[in-house]
Amino acid sequence: MNPNFKREDAGQPPSLHAPYASTVPRSPRQPLVRIPHTLTETTGPSNAWPRLMGGAMADLTTQHKAMPQGQRIIVSGRVLDEDGRPVPNTVMEIWQANAAGRYIHKKDQWDAPLDPNFTGAGRVITDDEGRYQFVSIRPGAYPWGNHHNAWRPAHIHLSLLGPAFATRLVTQMYFPDDPLIEIDPIANAVPLPYRQRLVSRFDIETTKPNWALGYLFDVVLRGRDQTPFEDDHHA
């Protein structure tokens, strides 16, 4: 039998965070119904990801004719579970704005230049030790309509499947020393100190001389839980 996974920890944000205005009409008001983990929650497509999505695209700077504008970066780290064990062979999907803070998306109305050499979409797979690495450019900050003079801090969207339906995670990685994090309603939906789990660290060891700045970002997915659900005793 597949073991259960642990539940949310204290660092997960609530669905309703009123300073992020669009959560107000889009978050449930009824309490969530807690259910045991069945085979449905403890399984997932795991190794089947290449058949689903295709192969890795670990360099976002070489998808077009020339190098994109902006500061080249190398983002690397590990995908781990809550017990510190590596999560190997799992997919991390990546998307982001360009160096000017503009998304290659028709609904992005921010008046900053598009870059024909930058899409901003990628995908990596963790190795046997849960390690991943991708090359991109540092995204820019951009304004949004949440409130007067609202600006999103520079961020990279990350999407992970992990081993099971229960471990699915979509998150955003931020950059150190970005003053916009302090005033961003999305980052601050996560209570402190846990918000800081989303802030990457600049790393001189993974910085490549005369080529790219290195940032470290580990992703921690839910771990295995040996504690049975209370109703399991009746099974």
Partner: peptide, 9 residues
């Protein structure tokens, strides 16, 4: 700070 990476939209 080690623990679950928080979800974001």
């Amino acid at each position: 700070l080690f623990g679950q990476t928080p979800s974001q939209t």
